[in-house]
């Protein structure tokens, strides 16, 4: 229990250090962009397949139910609302936490146990800025972009099913899909993904940066990063949905 409390306290200090690091030079803009590209390119295929599949499944599962109540025409809108508000952000965040979170934790963990981070520290190279700040910012930037990409593919997945079931045109599908979509639907969802990015980035870098006990510790850090970031993304989602409902109704 005491160990857990210590970890939580250390994590809070780590977050504080991250916010202070935003004002410290060098800002490592190029490295942040490189990390963003790395995260994006690593996740593109997985996020794309997940988005497309979810859109198709959603269309297949709900079309017969809606047809029973004579509401088949509402299917594109229903898919769009479900995907944009909830399914796109959460699926993307979970895929990224598994794919990227584990990678970040393992990479930093292995740098810690092979003393590469110490080497940066003793040469006054500010490793926190170069290794931690850049990766958290990269997650924060990449998540909204990946989510928009996943949302688009999920909508396309839904269209593929509707095309085969009802031979609906792409124009009609999208005009119907965006009927109930407004800024109040899109903006909170995008903001939510940035928060998910921050959660994944901060937990993955924290577990990696403070890895101990050699290669066994590296594996443990990667595992803990995935478990904790997935868990906190889901818990944060509940709170953020509640907050969105309070703010926007």
């Amino acid at each position: 229990m005491r160990n857990w409390l210590e970890q939580i306290g250390q994590f809070m200090l780590f977050i504080g250090q991250f916010f202070r690091s935003l004002l410290r030079r060098p800002l490592d803009g190029l490295e942040t962009l490189r990390q963003t590209h790395e995260i994006g390119s690593k996740s593109l295929l997985l996020v794309g397949i997940s988005g497309l599949s979810i859109g198709m499944v959603l269309a297949m599962q709900t079309s017969s139910t809606l047809a029973r109540f004579g509401g088949r025409g509402l299917l594109p809108s229903m898919i769009a609302v479900a995907v944009l508000r909830e399914i796109g952000p959460i699926i993307t965040a979970l895929v990224v936490s598994g794919r990227v979170g584990a990678g970040i934790a393992a990479q930093l963990g292995s740098m810690r146990v092979t003393e590469q981070i110490d080497a940066m520290e003793v040469a006054a190279l500010y490793p926190f800025g170069y290794l931690v700040r850049t990766r958290i910012l990269a997650c924060l930037i990449a998540l909204p972009i990946l989510t928009i990409y996943a949302d688009f593919l999920a909508l396309m997945g839904g269209y593929v099913i509707m095309f085969f079931q009802q031979n609906i045109s792409l124009k009609l599908y999208f005009s119907s899909a965006i009927r109930f979509i407004d800024l109040q639907t899109v903006l909170p969802a995008v903001a939510k993904t940035a928060i998910f990015g921050f959660i994944i980035g901060s937990i993955a870098t924290f577990t990696g940066y403070y890895t101990r006990h050699g290669t066994r510790g590296v594996g443990q850090s990667a595992m803990i990063a995935v478990v904790l970031s997935s868990l906190f993304v889901i818990v944060a989602d509940v709170l953020l949905v509640k907050l969105t409902l309070i703010l926007f109704g």
Binding site: M111, T114, E115, Q116, D118, A119, V122, A123, A124
Partner: peptide, 14 residues
């Protein structure tokens, strides 16, 4: 630290 060079046991190269 900028005035000190540190050679690590296992080199600790990036």
């Amino acid at each position: 630290r900028r005035q000190i060079g540190y050679v690590f046991q296992n080199a600790a190269l990036y």
